[in-house]
Amino acid sequence: MFLAVFSPKGSGEVSPDATLMQQLLRRDVGAFEELYERHSRIVYSLVLRILRQGSTAEEVVQDVFLQLWRNSAQYDLSRPFVPWLLTLARNRALDQLRLKSERQRRREEQTEQFPQIASAAPEYEQALDEKRRAERVRLLIGSLPIAQKKAIELAYFEGLSHSEIAASLKEPLGTVKSWIRSGLLRLKESLRATS
């Protein structure tokens, strides 16, 4: 049912980020600087949360924005920019976290290219600006039981699998699966409710 409200943005509508990315294709340093000003804080916050070390986090953020600069042609301008950028940053940070592990080697091939990301944002994305949407996300996840919140954070910030989370929290695997899915569905409903 909720899929009914999930559709691409109105055709012909170009976001400021997409415009800046177009300018980036022409090697516009000014556009790059503006993209950095607009998104470096959330990217850095996310990477720092994953890596918990400032200097390493800055190295990853630098890699992310340089990849943005050097491989801007790979970005599909019709796709939502911020989720794509955050997914790219998360993958890079998790790769760093898993450095030298077998999983890292498995992931390397995936991260050579830009990550897969939603081809379009849900309609309710427009109902809230970024700041209010961030508040809503924190409020909703913060309202979850601690263990459920922890399971989601381990999945998202640590990159752990269901089995790994279950082992870490010493909870049944099915419970962990349920916590993660239900938490994300509640978040979705919460965001939809604002539209």
Binding site: R41, S45, E58, I141, Y156
Partner: peptide, 28 residues
Amino acid sequence: QEARWLVSQLAYLAPNAEPSDMLKGRLL
């Protein structure tokens, strides 16, 4: 597609932090 967008919103759970000016300088 929607789930990927939704998951990306979890980034806002990260505590606000500010990168150093040196990072911006190096990048530019």
